[in-house]
């Protein structure tokens, strides 16, 4: 089942049913691409407000929250003694975003 959703509501694992194009018609992300956390963030930064997705591949929101919480806990364990310095916080954020994007 295909549908149009707001980009903010997109979830990693969803599959694009139509390519994302910019104002001049150039393809930014091809049809069939599977969304990742970083790709969604990148599209939001570019001002892409809506996406056409295959709803069948949508991850269950509850499962997504469980997965997200597991990754947050795992990263926090590795950073348990890293303190709150600017480098430690930035690195923790980057690793969290990276692992969310990979879904692992």
């Amino acid at each position: 089942m295909k549908g149009v959703i707001r980009t903010e509501a997109a979830l990693p694992g969803m599959c694009l049913s139509e390519a994302v194009v910019d104002d001049s018609g150039r393809v930014l992300v091809p049809e069939g691409a599977v969304l990742t956390e970083s790709l969604i963030q990148s599209l939001l930064r570019r001002g892409v407000s809506e996406l056409c997705v295959d709803q069948a591949t949508e991850e269950d929101p509850a499962e997504r929250e469980i997965r997200r919480a597991r990754i947050v806990r795992s990263v926090a364990v590795y950073f348990r003694q890293a303190g709150d310095g600017v480098g430690s916080l930035a690195l923790q954020e980057a690793i969290l975003t990276f692992r969310m994007g990979r879904g692992e």
Binding site: F79, Q81, A82, G87, L91, I95
Partner: peptide, 27 residues
């Protein structure tokens, strides 16, 4: 910083792995 990245990603697969505070000057 590379050491902190490797510890933060848990690459060694060691349950006791941890990141030490990242040095401000180096960062």
């Amino acid at each position: 910083v590379a050491d902190a990245i490797a510890h933060g990603l848990g690459l060694a697969g060691d349950d006791y792995d941890l990141v030490m505070p990242v040095d401000f000057t180096a960062w």
